[in-house]
């Protein structure tokens, strides 16, 4: 059977894509959910200098979700009482006691986090040695789809991509060039030489997946717009179309009793 079952008990090992780098700018804060029997609720943030970090989405003080917080310089500040945390999770400042150095025991729970190849990755395990892709893609968009990852991979293997600079509707068959644990690359022949689409999968639940999509660099703007519309249509058809998909769903659900 496939690997999904154990992943939804333990949660996936290794690096998990949680955002396109362009969607988490300097001083940006976002929430990310990682699948598992007890899904992880995380805050992912980028400091002024560009460093990315991921913590449990819960302030150690009074439990406020840190994803409602804001970045000040190199620190994430909680919205409730303004406690500030460094990228190592350590509490650096407690505004109610401005002259006090917070004890090192006050610490947000951290996860490994890195910005690589245009994607922000998080890992919950100790072993972060597995390879990350080096596709050199350019961020297009992220989208949440009400389908499991297995089904989406199958649908992508049969998709057609828009390839024309002049018509949104001129499509060409796409082929999978590369497949990895977290990602796949589609290739199609287009007006603009070599069109590649990188899709990174973030499992949210067995039936919901976040897709982080990149294109090959230096594509004409018109084509990127067409691809963005294609992604919208792909989501719609994945969520709404056909018996075939339903039967795939049934197969994949057998593995998540």
């Amino acid at each position: 059977m496939n690997a999904d079952h154990s992943e939804f008990v333990e949660g996936p090992d290794g690096w998990i894509p949680v955002a396109l780098s362009v969607d988490l700018p300097e001083a940006g804060v976002m929430r990310a959910v990682i699948a598992g029997a007890q899904p992880l609720d995380l805050v992912v943030w980028r400091s002024r200098s560009g460093q990315v970090s991921a913590f449990d989405n819960r302030c150690p003080h009074r439990g406020m979700r840190l994803s409602f917080g804001f970045v000040r310089g190199e620190r994430l500040s909680c919205i409730y009482h303004g406690w500030q945390y460094g990228e190592d999770g350590g509490c650096r400042h407690i505004p109610a006691h401005p002259d006090m150095t917070p004890p090192t025991s006050i610490c947000a729970n951290t996860y490994a986090c890195q910005d690589h190849d245009g994607v922000v990755w998080v890992s919950k395990g100790a072993d972060n040695s597995d390879d990350l892709p080096n596709f050199g893609g350019q961020g297009l968009r992220s989208l949440s789809v009400e389908r499991g990852e297995t089904v989406l991979r199958k649908l992508l293997a049969e998709t057609h991509l828009p390839v024309s600079l002049t018509s949104d509707m001129q499509m060409a068959e796409a082929a999978i060039a590369t497949q990895t644990r977290t990602s796949l690359v589609l290739e199609a022949r287009s007006d603009a030489k070599n069109l590649r689409l990188m899709v990174h999968f973030q499992k949210i639940t067995p039936d919901r997946t976040m897709l982080h999509v990149q294109t090959s660099p230096e594509l004409p703007a018109e084509l990127r717009i067409s691809l963005s519309r294609w992604a919208e249509r792909f989501r719609w058809s994945a969520e709404n179309l056909g018996t075939m998909i339903n039967s795939w769903d049934a197969t994949s659900q057998e593995t998540h009793p």
Binding site: R58, G63, M64, R65, H81, A96, H97, M100, S105, I106
Partner: peptide, 28 residues
């Protein structure tokens, strides 16, 4: 309310290990 509806857990933890207070939280 925008704070209260986003505290985790939703129940008030009475186990002192669960959340970290400081002197300003003496009332709590």
């Amino acid at each position: 309310r925008s704070i209260l509806e986003n505290q985790i857990p939703r129940l008030l933890p009475l186990d002192p290990k669960m959340e970290v207070p400081t002197r300003a939280d003496t009332t709590s």
